[in-house]
Simulated scan of single mutants.
Amino acid sequence: MTNERRVLVHPDKVSLAGSVAARFITKMLDLLDAQPVVHVVLTGGSMGAAVLEAVAASPARMSIDWTRVHFWWGDERWVPARDTERNDEQSRVALLDDLDLPEGNLHPFPTSDSGLTLDEAAVDYAAELADHGVDGMPHPIFDITFLGVGPDGHIASLFPHRSGIQVTDRTVIVVRDSPKPPPERLSLTRPVINASQRVWLVLAGADKASALGLALAGASRDEVPVAGIKGRRRTVFFVDQDAAAEVPESLIARDY
Rank of each mutant, 00 (worst) to 15 (best):
T2A: 12
T2S: 13
T2C: 04
N3M: 12
N3C: 11
E4T: 15
E4N: 10
E4S: 15
E4I: 14
R5P: 02
R5Y: 04
R6H: 05
R6E: 03
R6S: 07
R6V: 06
R6C: 04
R6W: 02
R6A: 14
V7Y: 10
V7S: 05
V7F: 10
V7E: 00
V7L: 03
L8N: 05
L8R: 15
L8M: 13
L8C: 13
V9L: 12
V9G: 11
V9Q: 06
H10T: 09
H10C: 12
H10F: 11
H10G: 07
P11W: 08
P11K: 14
P11H: 10
P11S: 11
P11V: 10
P11T: 13
P11Y: 05
D12P: 00
D12G: 10
D12A: 14
D12L: 09
D12E: 13
D12V: 06
K13C: 09
K13M: 09
K13E: 12
V14M: 11
V14T: 15
V14N: 12
L16Q: 07
L16R: 05
L16E: 02
L16C: 14
A17D: 01
A17S: 13
A17F: 00
A17H: 03
A17E: 01
A17P: 00
G18M: 04
G18H: 04
G18D: 02
S19H: 08
S19W: 02
V20C: 06
V20R: 03
V20T: 07
V20M: 08
V20D: 02
V20I: 13
A21I: 13
A21D: 04
A21Q: 12
A21E: 08
A21L: 09
A21M: 14
A22W: 01
A22Q: 06
A22N: 05
A22R: 15
A22I: 02
A22C: 03
R23V: 01
R23G: 02
R23I: 02
R23N: 06
R23Q: 04
I25P: 00
I25E: 01
I25M: 11
I25D: 02
I25F: 06
T26R: 14
K27P: 00
K27Q: 13
K27V: 04
M28W: 01
M28Y: 03
M28N: 08
L29Q: 08
L29H: 07
L29N: 09
L29M: 11
D30F: 11
D30Q: 15
L31I: 11
L31T: 09
L31C: 08
L31R: 10
L32F: 10
L32N: 12
L32T: 14
D33P: 04
D33G: 15
D33W: 06
A34D: 15
A34I: 09
A34P: 03
Q35T: 08
Q35W: 11
P36I: 06
P36W: 05
P36Q: 13
V37Y: 03
V37E: 03
V37P: 02
V37F: 01
V38G: 06
V38F: 07
V38P: 12
V38T: 13
H39V: 09
H39C: 07
H39N: 15
H39A: 12
H39K: 13
H39Y: 07
V40W: 00
V40K: 01
V40R: 00
V41M: 06
V41L: 05
L42Q: 02
L42M: 08
L42D: 00
L42I: 05
L42P: 00
T43H: 07
T43Y: 09
T43V: 10
T43Q: 07
